[in-house]
Amino acid sequence: MITGILAFVALASFFGLVLGLSAVIFKVESSPVVDQIDTLLPQTQCGQCSFAGCHQYAQAIASGDAPINKCPPGGDNLIQSLADLLDVEALPLDETEAAHSGPIVAVIIEDTCIGCTLCIQACPVDAILGAAKQMHTVIENECTGCELCVAPCPVDCIEMIPIKQTISNWRWPEPQYHTNNQAASTIYTTLDQVLAENTQA
């Protein structure tokens, strides 16, 4: 009996040692959850979530202080991926904030700009170029469309405009499962109109 006990103790300590060592040697470095959340957020730094920036919101989500549906620029896709990451229920987007309508970009009406630099100070991503008493302009590619520069402008010369759809940023629409015929017919209306004119002529 004693041999049995000793054998099992020896086995247990051996495997314990192996497991313990492998836990140390093959340790998987997982990035902290805040960083993982931060990577998913759209980084507009717009503050629509009522936090100062995306990182702060990520911290709040990680600590459980904020729900995952406070980010209008991220939309439903973001909520879904956050829900997957944190293994929580996906919530509908909190619509108390202004509804987000497609990607937008700030444009300075250069005739009106007085060069006060207030918008430059407000821009969270340094996307506005200019100096005191010099005309300012927005670097379109860097603008996240956060609208933070609109309020400080004393002469209201900043407009938010939707990003123009071009062939390079056009995307195939999601196929309509049961109504693909209808979808098809809507695409061809233009040609139909053209041809209708033709037959009349």
Binding site: D38, Q43, G53, V125, E142, W172, P175
Partner: peptide
Amino acid sequence: QYFRYAKNEINNEQKERNKANIARERHEF
């Protein structure tokens, strides 16, 4: 059509992720 759509969306997501990364870098800077 679904595959074209999926490819488009994946590319687009990648593009947005890249843009977000640049925005984060600029913000942190």
